[in-house]
């Protein structure tokens, strides 16, 4: 047995990492197939999203109020959908003449691994009233097929 200097902080850190790994695993199991790329997230805020699936497509909705159409970027690379952009503060706070600031500002990125292949050239993105809607049509093979089994 080797002697190791006891460091309470290091022990605590490993414990926290273990716990984090456990929690991540739990979430991974929960969102299997549509998991978020945790390591890509370095931004200070991330928009809230809704993702739903129909037989033909995936629909992603993100709330990004206060961002203009030109400041939003949607990309798909290696089956990873990324929404990024920047929310700029409308008013300069030079004079510090504010009473309250509750809204968040800054750049954001959010990435999602798509559970199946999508027709990249047919992806539709719309931005209206601060809500970004992305429709990703599924590739034929990725659609769920129902096969009827006849029991003879």
């Amino acid at each position: 047995m080797t002697l190791v200097r006891w460091s309470p902080l290091r022990d605590l850190a490993t414990e926290i990492f273990d716990l984090q790994r456990e929690i991540n695993k739990m979430f991974d199991r929960f969102f299997r197939g549509f998991e978020e790329e945790e390591e890509v997230r370095i931004s200070t805020w991330s928009p809230r999203v809704d993702i739903s699936e129909t037989d033909d497509e995936y629909i992603v909705r993100a709330e990004i109020p206060g961002v203009s159409k030109d400041d939003v970027k949607v990309t798909i690379r290696d089956n990873v959908l990324t929404i990024s952009g920047e929310k700029k503060q409308e008013k300069e706070t030079k004079n510090e003449n504010f009473h309250r600031i509750e809204r968040v500002y800054g750049s954001f990125t959010r990435s999602f691994t798509l559970p199946g292949a999508v027709k990249v050239d047919k992806v539709e993105a719309k931005f209206k009233d601060g809500v970004l809607t992305i429709k990703l049509p599924k590739v034929e093979e990725a659609k769920t097929k129902e096969i009827e089994v006849k029991v003879g």
Binding site: E63, E90, K91, H99, D129
Partner: peptide, 22 residues
């Protein structure tokens, strides 16, 4: 919804995030 409130000599300016509201 979150809101920002600023004051100028002539007015108060209020920003409220209301995504999806027409």
């Amino acid at each position: 919804p979150p809101a920002d409130l600023y004051e100028t000599p002539d007015a108060y300016i209020l920003y409220i995030d209301l995504p999806g509201v027409t």
